[in-house]
Design a protein around this nucleic acid. Structure first.
Length: 500
RNA sequence: GGCCUCGUAGCUCAGGUGGUUAGAGCACCGGACUCAUAAUCCGAGGGUCGAGGGUUCGAAUCCCUCCGGGGCCA
């Protein structure tokens, strides 16, 4: 049995509501997952929650609940949000689950067994920022405050911690990236990571004293595992590690993360795995951020409302389209309702939706929906083949925005072809052979568009697929996009795909 | 503070190993068509390529400084 394509997103920190920034990541990863499944590849797609640490404990206390009850509610809220956005994850991992605790314990014990000198006890004294869950260096402190959380007091803390000898893995991680065994994409993020690695690494504290909301550090004395060290291991615990069969999924094929946490995923995580003599993930893809009207989307006021608003605006598929087509999955992009409305009207309602509507309407009006077989190719066919190839090239290199752009261009080409071939004139003149050829190639383009759109807009693509008289699910049907056979099928007009 | 990155038509972006009049889509304006969700097609207008300086016969493209957005700093 072939190993499934194992794809993960970052697990989100359970101290706030889901926002557009989270949504971009889940949707982008979901597009990747659906693209693979469309081609018939088995996929294992995991998302989840990061639920330990001081900030979660404080958020729970502030809400007057026990941390377990608090994180249950947050987890439920996140997952239902992603389901509402048509995310197709196969598993939902939470760091408070027993399976995760078992994996964390096992991994730490494995490191201790394989490289005992790489876990050591030391004193740590420093100023701790609860906002960051990190000790801050002098370079990050301005006026006695953390630059990230200037409203919070830094806490002078001295404790006995367990350390991980990260410094020992600097060259090995560097080599793995340079050799391409561990890919960091896009290149801009790889360059940043390489610069950090070349600058040298220091050992890191991986336990916390006096913090009960966490996983007990194995062999430790009243310590818990530092929340970041804990969280990274989720990718392994979701495979079932250390139970038999975990290596049917591991190594991960892609970890999808935000650009802000590359250091954890591209330096610390591979070092942890090497210290445990485990294979590295094949790739980390670090996307950019969604800006909200030019400003950073964070956990600040109002952004949680805006995600619900954005979904309600034109439905989940339209939001998915906008985030992929306009915001993109590489660099930062901006979200505004003005742009969202403009894209919805131009790309979807007047674009794909109207094309589907006019083509099927003509097929029904002139031919009762029956598509003729064996018609000679029109110029549209060659154009479509080229654009499908462009789409494949883009999505294969994770250029989701480029793939979406290819969809849009194919819609434009088909609309132009309708104008130039004027099927209504052919019908009036009784040029039946020409009319059949034109309708067949237009319907063929709609089949291609349904397939190309399926990763981005699964529900709308399915509606179109059904209206085109294709049988069964769209999943696994990518092969038919190369040269879809439409002769002999019967189409009907779909319900209004993108109402205005 | 250090390092990195981005800044091109109203908006979203291409271009960028220097070289003819800087491109596309959206929006706006004019025309055409009628199959379609008052949709679509064709055409026109619109930019001193963040600012200043430098290298060069020639710079959006290379160098420096500054301004603004973003990221990282164990």
């Amino acid at each position: 049995m072939t190993k499934p394509f194992y794809l993960t997103t970052a697990i989100d920190y359970a101290n706030g509501d889901p926002h557009l920034g989270h949504a971009l990541e889940k949707i982008g990863a979901d597009v990747m997952a659906r693209w693979r499944r469309l081609g018939g590849e088995p996929v294992h797609f995991v998302m989840g929650m990061d639920e330990h640490g001081q900030k979660v404990l404080q958020a729970a206390q502030a809400s007057g609940r026990e941390p377990a009850a608090y994180t249950d509610a947050i987890s439920e809220r996140f997952e239902s949000t992603w389901r509402g956005l048509a995310c197709s994850h196969d598993d939902w991992i939470r760091t408070t689950q027993p399976r995760h605790r078992a994996a964390v314990t096992a991994l730490i014990e494995r490191i201790r067994e394989r490289h005992p000198e790489h876990l050591f006890v030391g004193d740590y004294e420093g100023r701790y920022c609860v906002g960051c869950e990190e000790f801050k260096q002098d370079s990050q402190i301005v006026d006695g405050r953390c630059t990230e959380h200037p409203s919070r007091e830094l806490v002078l803390t001295r404790e006995r911690n367990t350390f991980f000898r990260l410094s020992a893995w600097q060259d090995a991680v560097l080599e793995a990236i340079e050799a391409g065994r561990f890919r960091v994409e896009p290149a801009i993020r790889r360059n940043e990571v390489l610069a950090v690695l070349r600058g040298g690494l220091e050992d890191i504290s991986i336990s916390r004293s006096r913090l009960p909301w966490g996983i007990p550090f194995p062999g430790g004395d009243d310590e818990t595992v530092y929340v970041w060290f804990d969280a990274l291991i989720n990718y392994l615990s979701a495979t079932g590690y250390p139970e038999d069969g975990w290596d049917r999924l591991w190594p991960a094929d892609v970890h999808v993360i935000g650009k802000g946490i590359t250091r954890f995923h591209c330096i610390i995580w591979p070092a942890m795995l090497m210290a445990a003599d485990l294979p590295l993930p094949r790739m980390v893809w670090a996307h950019g951020y969604v800006q909200w009207g030019g400003a950073k989307v964070s956990k600040s006021e109002g952004t949680a409302v805006s995600l619900d608003e954005a979904v309600a605006r034109h439905g989940p598929d339209a939001l998915r389209w906008f985030l992929m087509r306009e915001v993109g999955f590489e660099a930062d992009g901006d979200f505004t309702f003005e742009r969202f409305d403009a894209r919805y009207a131009a790309d979807l309602a007047d674009g794909l939706g109207n094309l589907a509507s006019r083509v099927t309407a003509m097929a029904v009006k002139y031919r009762d929906g029956a598509i003729a077989a064996g018609t000679p190719p029109t110029p549209l066919r060659e154009t479509a083949v080229a654009l499908v190839a462009e789409y494949v090239a883009a999505i294969s290199r994770h250029d989701l925005r480029g793939a979406a752009a290819a969809i849009e261009r194919l819609v434009g080409e088909a609309d132009a072809f309708v104008s130039s071939s004027a099927p209504w004139a052919l019908a009036k003149a009784g040029q039946d052979a020409e009319l059949d050829a034109v309708l067949a190639d237009l319907v063929q383009v709609l089949v291609r568009l349904a397939l190309m759109s399926a990763p981005f807009m699964p529900e709308k693509a399915r509606s179109l697929w059904d209206a085109l008289g294709r049988d069964g699910p769209i999943e696994g049907q990518w092969r038919s996009a190369e040269q879809p056979v439409v002769g002999g099928t019967t189409v009907r007009k779909p319900e209004n795909l993108f109402p205005k």
